[in-house]
Design a protein around this nucleic acid. Structure first.
Length: 649
RNA sequence: GCUGACGUAGCUCAGGGGUAGAGCACUUCCUUGGUAAGGAAGAGGUCGGGAGUUCAAAUCUCCUCGUCAGCUCCA
C-alpha cells in the first residue's frame, strides 16, 4: 500500500508498485503526459520507479513549470545528446553531463584524430530529435561497483572509472535510454519524447574536474524545450540580451574604446563615457565625505619591496606585468596592482592613538593587473582599472560597526543606480587549501566570523562560497548579473587581520600599550570600469538623467531658427543642464530619429510656433510628446526629476 | 594561458583564386521642413599583420596579432 499526501494536503492510497507516473495518470491524462519528475519527501526522483510503501509520502509531481522539472529534463537531454554524439563518434569517451541554469552540457574526450567543431551541430541536433521521437524510456538500473567497473573498463572510459571509484557500492546506478548507457545517479524524465526542441549552443574546452593540470575535454553546451515555440522565444531573448551588451552600446554611444596599439584590456574613455564616469566619482566622493572618509592619493607604481612585504609579490609577482627597472637596474618597481600597501605606509607615517581610530583612507586608485588574455572582456575584465578603494584601520571592537556601515554604503549605491537584484556572497577560504592563503587560523576565524555576523545583523540574504576569499582575508562580495546572466563582482568588503601584521601597524591604546589595528578593504563600485559596464547592460544605455552625458538636444525645424536655438541653448546652460543644438541640414523627422537612436532624454523642438509663442515643444526619449512648455517650467521639471533621482540615493 | 569560432570602408554586413561590394555614417549641392530615415552627386579599403603555394591570393596553407563563447584564473 502506498499512502500519498498531495501538496494540497489531501491523502490518497494506491496499490503497491504504484509509480509517480501512475499517480499522475490517476489524476489526469494531461498531467501524466507532462510530468517530468517527482518530488517525494523533498527528494526529486524518477516517475517510473515504484514508490515506497507503508509510510505516508509527501508527493509533488514536477512538470516543465517547475525549476526542478526543467533541471531533470535538461539532465536527460544531456544524456540524449551523448547518445546522438555516440552515434556519429562511437570512440568518444564521456565524462560528466549535468544540467545548468539555462540548459546543459556534456564534457567528453574526442579521439585525437577527430576534430569537433560547431559545424557538426546541425546533424547532431537532427539525430537528437530523431531519437527523441522514439520515446525511449530512461531506465534506471542498480549495479554493483564491480559491474560498473567492468562495464567502463570495457569501454576504456577512465573518467567514469574515476567517478565510480569515489562512489559507495550499493549506491551506483546506470541509466539507459535507447542504445545508450550512462553512469548516473538520476533522476530522469520518463522518456525521450518530452524533448521536442533542442539547440546546441557552443563548443568549448573544459578541464577534467575543473583543474587546469588535468586534460582538457571538449564541452558542448545545449538547451532543450518541450515545445518548439519555447526554443524560438529563448533564442529571441538571447538576441535581445545581446543588444544590451555594454561593448556594443559603448561603441554606439561613443562611451569608450579599445585600441590594439594602446594594448589589450586597456580601455580609453571617450568624452561622453568620461563624463558619465566623473559623475559617478563625484557622487562617491560626496558619499564618502559624509561617512567620514579622508581622501589620499598614491602613485601608480611601488617598489618590489612594498609588495614583498604585503605578500602580493609571492602570490602574484610571477603573473604580474614585469617590473620596471631604474637605469642602473638596482631597483625594481611594479605597476600598482592594489592600493592597500600604499595606504598601509600612509597609516605608518605617524604614530596613531586609539583616539584617532577608525581611520578611513579613500582613493580612486588606478591599478594594473596582468589578466590572462582569454579572460579579458569589454570593460568587465581589463588590465588597467580604477577602484573606488578605501581602507579602514580600526580597533578590533570597532570592526563590526565599521563593516556594517560599509554595507550601508554598498546598498545605498546599488539602490541609487537601480540595481535591485544582487547576490550577496560571503567568500571564505577553502579549508582544504590553506596553503593558498596567508595568516593564522585564528585570524581567519576572527575575520570570517566578523563578516558572517555583520551580514546577519544587516539581514542580508547571503550565499557562502568556499575558496573565493582573497589570499589575505575573507570577503563579502556583491554580485550583479550581466545581460546574458553572467555574474560579476561589483562591491566588495574585506576584513583583514593579516596585512596589519605584515606591515607592523600599531596604535597606542588607552592602556599605554601598543596594539594592532584591523583593516577593512572596501570598494562599493568595485571597479569603475566594471560598474559602468553593468550599468550600461542594466539600463540598455538609457541612464538616469543625472548621469546621462547629453540630457537634451535642441532641434530647429529649419535653419531659419538656428540662431534662436543657440540663444536658447545659452540660456538653458545657466540651469546646469547639458545638451546641444542639432543644426544639421536635415528634416525634423531625421533629427528626431537620430536623437532617439542616441538615447537623448529630451528633444526640444523649435519652429515658427515656438518662436512666436516663446515656448518649447518637448518630446521625451521613447516618443512621449509633452507639448509646449515655457523654458523656465521645463527647466524646473528637469531639475526636479534629477533631484528626485539623487535624493532617492 | 587552454579549446573552438571570427577579423572585408567609421558602423552593420555580403563576396570567397582573375581590376573591392551594399546600406547607414561622412563631404558637397538641391530642398527649408512639425515628432523615428527628403533627393542627387562624391569621397572613403595594400580585405588585421607576416610568410608560403600560384601566372594570379581578400579568397588556399602556415605563423602572428586582435575579437567572441567557454574553461582555468581573478589581490
Amino acid at each position: 500500500m502506498v499512502i500519498i499526501q498531495f501538496p494540497d494536503n489531501s491523502i490518497k492510497k494506491f496499490p503497491s508498485g504504484t509509480s509517480a507516473l501512475d499517480v499522475a495518470n490517476s489524476i489526469s491524462e494531461g498531467l501524466a503526459r507532462n510530468v517530468l519528475a517527482a518530488k517525494v519527501n523533498n527528494k526529486v526522483i524518477d516517475t517510473l520507479i515504484p514508490l515506497e510503501e507503508n509510510n505516508q509520502l509527501k508527493l509533488e509531481l514536477l512538470t516543465w513549470k517547475d525549476d526542478q522539472g526543467k533541471e531533470t529534463m535538461w539532465h536527460s537531454s544531456a544524456h540524449l545528446m551523448a547518445e546522438a554524439i555516440h552515434f556519429y563518434y562511437p570512440k568518444v569517451k564521456f565524462a560528466i553531463g549535468p544540467p545548468i541554469e539555462h540548459g546543459f552540457y556534456y564534457d567528453m574526450e574526442f579521439p585525437k584524430e577527430t576534430s569537433f567543431s560547431s559545424e557538426s551541430f546541425l546533424k547532431i541536433e537532427k539525430k537528437i530529435l530523431e531519437l527523441a521521437k522514439e520515446k525511449n524510456e530512461y531506465k534506471r538500473k542498480l549495479v554493483t561497483k564491480k559491474e560498473a567497473i567492468k562495464y567502463f573498463t570495457e569501454k576504456n572510459n577512465n573518467y567514469k572509472l574515476e567517478l565510480i571509484n569515489d562512489l559507495e557500492d550499493g549506491q551506483i546506478t546506470f541509466y539507459q535510454q535507447g542504445q545508450f548507457i550512462d553512469l548516473c545517479k538520476g533522476p530522469h524524465i520518463p522518456h525521450t519524447g518530452h524533448i521536442k526542441a533542442v539547440k546546441l549552443l557552443n563548443v568549448a574546452g573544459a578541464y577534467w574536474k575543473g583543474d587546469e593540470k588535468n586534460k582538457q575535454l571538449t564541452r558542448i553546451y545545449g538547451i532543450s524545450f518541450p515545445k518548439k515555440k519555447e526554443l524560438t522565444s529563448h533564442l529571441e531573448r538571447l538576441e535581445e540580451a545581446k543588444k544590451r551588451d555594454h561593448r556594443k552600446i559603448g561603441k554606439n554611444m561613443s562611451l569608450f574604446m579599445f585600441s590594439k596599439k594602446v594594448g589589450q584590456g586597456l580601455p580609453l574613455w571617450l568624452p561622453k563615457g568620461a563624463f558619465l564616469r566623473s559623475q559617478l566619482v563625484d557622487f562617491m566622493k560626496q558619499t564618502q565625505l559624509k561617512f567620514g572618509y579622508q581622501p589620499v592619493i598614491t602613485p601608480h607604481i611601488g617598489s618590489k619591496e612594498l609588495y614583498v612585504c604585503s605578500g602580493h609579490y609571492d602570490k602574484y609577482g610571477e603573473d604580474s606585468f614585469q617590473p620596471i627597472k631604474t637605469p642602473d637596474a638596482n631597483e625594481e618597481f611594479f605597476l600598482k596592482p592594489m592600493n592597500c600597501p600604499h595606504h598601509c605606509e600612509i597609516y605608518k607615517s605617524e604614530p596613531r592613538s586609539y583616539k584617532d581610530l577608525p581611520i578611513r583612507f579613500a582613493e580612486f586608485g588606478t591599478v594594473y593587473r596582468y589578466e590572462q588574455s582569454g579572460e579579458l572582456h569589454g570593460l568587465t575584465r581589463v588590465r588597467g582599472f580604477t577602484q573606488d578603494d578605501a581602507h579602514i584601520f580600526a580597533m578590533p571592537h570597532q570592526v563590526q560597526s565599521e563593516f556594517e556601515s560599509v554595507i550601508d554604503i554598498v546598498l545605498y549605491v546599488l539602490k541609487a543606480m537601480g540595481f535591485d537584484k544582487y547576490i550577496a556572497q560571503i567568500s571564505l577560504r577553502d579549508p582544504k587549501k590553506k596553503e593558498k592563503y596567508i595568516g593564522s587560523d585564528e585570524n581567519w576565524q576572527l575575520a570570517e566570523e566578523a563578516i558572517i555576523q555583520s551580514a546577519k545583523n544587516k539581514n542580508l540574504e547571503t550565499t557562502i562560497e568556499y575558496g573565493e576569499a582573497a589570499f589575505y582575508g575573507p570577503k563579502l562580495d556583491f554580485m550583479i548579473k550581466d545581460a546574458i546572466g553572467r555574474k560579476w563582482q561589483l562591491g566588495t568588503i574585506q576584513v583583514d587581520y593579516n596585512l596589519p601584521e605584515r606591515f607592523q601597524l600599531e596604535y597606542k591604546g588607552s592602556d599605554d600599550k601598543m596594539h594592532r589595528p584591523v583593516m577593512i578593504h572596501r570598494a562599493p563600485f568595485g571597479s569603475l570600469e566594471r560598474f559602468i559596464a553593468l550599468l550600461i547592460e542594466h539600463t540598455g544605455g538609457n541612464f538616469p538623467l543625472w548621469l546621462t552625458p547629453v540630457q537634451f538636444i535642441i532641434l530647429p525645424i529649419s535653419k531659419k531658427y538656428n540662431e534662436y536655438c543657440y540663444k536658447l541653448l545659452n540660456s538653458i546652460k545657466n540651469y546646469d543642464i547639458r545638451g546641444h543644438v542639432d543644426d544639421r541640414n536635415e528634416t525634423t523627422g531625421k533629427k528626431i530619429r537620430d536623437a532617439e537612436l542616441k538615447k537623448i532624454p529630451y528633444m526640444l523642438i523649435i519652429g515658427e510656433k515656438e518662436v512666436t509663442e516663446n515656448q518649447i515643444s518637448v518630446r521625451e526619449h521613447g516618443g512621449n510628446n509633452l507639448g509646449s512648455i515655457k523654458e523656465g517650467d521645463l527647466m524646473q521639471m528637469i531639475k526636479e526629476k534629477i533631484d528626485k533621482e539623487i535624493e532617492k540615493n
